[in-house]
């Protein structure tokens, strides 16, 4: 293929590398060497993940976590240009400012739908293993160029601005990757099997209603602990859905699947472990309370969870 997913990872790595160089060179940050090293290591794992033997990538990832744990990751102080300056620039460009931002989703969509499977000179244009990711990466490159051209911004300015945003996200940028990693280790260690055995022991076997209640709440709780509904589903389905709901009560697996994943998402809305959705945005939006987004989501999540329990119970007992 001509454009592969690895190229997008290299691009991500280059952006992070640029940020780390600026941090190394910033004497105003008292921990600039550890902070810069954190981003330098991260950029290496992004760019060369495919080439480095996994054992060493593991060591690098742990080194990053050690920097976080020892307080070595410190945010730099950014001097933002004045509001008046921004106001002047805004007046020059006005509504056109939106164009590069909107280009990203539009080009991603067009690229993923129209260019998937397209061949040039016998080679696939986009990496078939993840067309959407590659399309998104290419869309971003075009959008970066458009933004630089429109704002007369240099590549250096683009990296400086990326650094400001990346530092405002901080260590949370690593969390989704670490959580997915945790899920893999849990599976290999057999955590799933142990949990399902324990859950099976406390279920009142004859009661459809209580099985549905425990299943849905279990999906939500397990998701809250793991921060990821994907990890909860195999455990809860193997422990409860297949032996009880499907085999004993003859439930339709399609209903169970649709509703159980949503029950898990209710948990996602209520947990700081789902950092990408709940904690990163709080940082991005400068919220003082890092759990503010979660607090706002809890009432909706609980209402939907209750609805899921009732819907699943009704569907299974009516045998639709």
């Amino acid at each position: 293929m001509i454009f592969s997913v690895e190229m997008i990872y290299v691009l991500m790595g280059i952006i992070v590398l640029g940020c780390s160089l600026y941090i190394f060179a910033d004497p105003s940050n008292s921990r600039r060497f550890t902070t810069g090293s954190f981003y330098l290591i991260y950029s290496v794992t992004l760019m060369f993940g495919k080439l480095i033997p996994p054992f060493y990538t593991g060591l690098l990832a742990i080194a990053m976590v050690v920097i976080i744990a020892s307080g070595g990751l410190k945010k730099s102080v950014h001097v933002e240009n004045s509001l008046q300056d921004r106001e002047e620039r805004r007046k020059k460009l006005g509504g056109k400012l939106f164009i590069p931002a909107i280009l990203i989703p539009i080009l991603t969509l067009l690229g993923a739908k129209l260019l998937a499977g397209v061949k040039i000179g016998g080679k696939l244009l986009l990496d078939p293993s993840n067309v959407t990711m590659v399309a998104l990466g290419l869309a971003c490159i075009i959008a970066i160029l458009a933004a630089m051209w429109m704002t007369r911004g240099t590549p250096a300015a683009a990296v400086k601005e990326s650094r400001r945003l990346l530092e405002s996200i901080g260590w949370a940028v690593l969390l989704p990757q670490l959580l997915a990693t945790l899920g893999t280790i849990y599976t290999n260690a057999g955590v799933g099997k142990v949990v399902s055995k324990g859950v099976t022991a406390i279920i009142p076997a004859g009661s459809l209603f209580w099985i549905v209640v425990i299943f849905c709440i279990g999906m939500a709780l397990f998701t809250m602990i793991m921060g990821n509904a994907f990890a909860a589903f195999p455990v809860m389905a193997a422990g409860i859905a297949i032996p009880f709901l499907i085999n004993q009560f003859d439930a339709n697996p399609n209903h169970i699947a649709a509703i159980s994943m949503f029950a898990g998402y209710c948990g996602t809305l209520m947990t700081p472990m789902a950092a990408n959705f709940n904690i990163v945005p709080a940082a991005l939006l400068d919220l003082k309370d890092k759990n503010h987004v979660i607090k706002v989501q809890v009432p909706t999540a609980l209402a939907v969870l209750l609805f899921n329990i009732i819907l699943m119970y009704v569907l299974v007992s009516l045998d639709v």
């Binding site: 991500m12 996994p54 931002a101 933004a147 400086k160 940028v173 990693t181």
Partner: peptide, 23 residues
């Protein structure tokens, strides 16, 4: 740990959008 960390790099895709949004 390293293997899973590499496989899940796509979770950090938001980094590519930072230069656009920042500018």
């Amino acid at each position: 740990f390293g293997e899973a960390f590499t496989t899940n790099r796509y979770m950090s895709i938001l980094i590519v959008t930072l230069p656009v949004i920042g500018l």
